[in-house]
């Protein structure tokens, strides 16, 4: 009984397999194998070429961001590649941030940019400023850019370094924390 059914079964399977093959080919959907570390959860959403805007409870824009890739996980954590963020500031140029990697810890709203992180913006007096740091927290809840990983800064009339930084983009304050060294460009003789 079994011998007689088998050929019949093969004749049934052939068109079915052909159909599946065609389906994947024609729709051009190549399911990319998601690189998942051993034991790590697979991302719930895995997105390429992402752009997003974060707004607060009142609908006020907190930042806009882009990333070459963004993976979101069930515990609300996230990982980004080639992350770029724009943080608006009232009456001043926005902070423009970029880093090769970024991540968001589980169940938190802040984002960690991982270096080298470049920060382009301006001092409170408006002078254009570039900063670099190995790591930077972007905390929309507290409107705060912060790091304790060391920061170098450079601008036309002053440059230097510090161990830590806190910049409140709502209050428009800048704090340099720990071993601050600031060099001012000398007057022209």
């Amino acid at each position: 009984m079994f011998a007689r059914i088998k050929p019949w079964l093969i004749w049934l399977m052939l068109p079915l397999m052909a159909g599946v093959w065609l389906l994947f080919q024609s729709r051009g959907m190549q399911p990319e194998p998601v690189p998942v570390a051993d034991g790590a959860a697979a991302p719930r959403y895995s997105l390429r070429g992402v752009k997003w805007t974060r707004v607060d409870a009142t609908g006020q824009r907190e930042f806009t961001a882009e990333a070459d890739s963004a993976d979101y996980y069930d515990d609300e954590s996230a990982r980004y590649e080639q992350l770029r963020m724009n943080v608006p500031r009232a009456g001043q140029a926005p902070w423009r941030l970029s880093s090769p990697k970024g991540s968001a810890p589980a169940h938190e709203k802040r984002i960690s940019m991982e270096g080298p992180v470049e920060v382009v913006g301006s001092w409170p007096d408006g002078e254009a400023l570039t900063m670099t740091t190995p790591q930077l927290w972007v905390d929309p809840a507290r409107h705060l850019l912060s790091t304790e990983a060391g920061v170098q800064f450079d601008s036309a009339s002053r440059s230097g370094q510090a161990k830590g930084l806190k910049a409140d983009w709502e209050q428009q304050t800048v704090q340099l924390l720990g071993n601050v060294r600031m060099q001012y460009v000398p007057r022209k003789p």
Binding site: Q171, V180, M182, Q183
Partner: peptide, 13 residues
């Protein structure tokens, strides 16, 4: 060149 060193700096707009 003028160099300033300190423990911290505070700067408000």
């Amino acid at each position: 060149p003028v160099t300033v060193t300190a423990t911290s700096v505070d700067w408000a707009k």
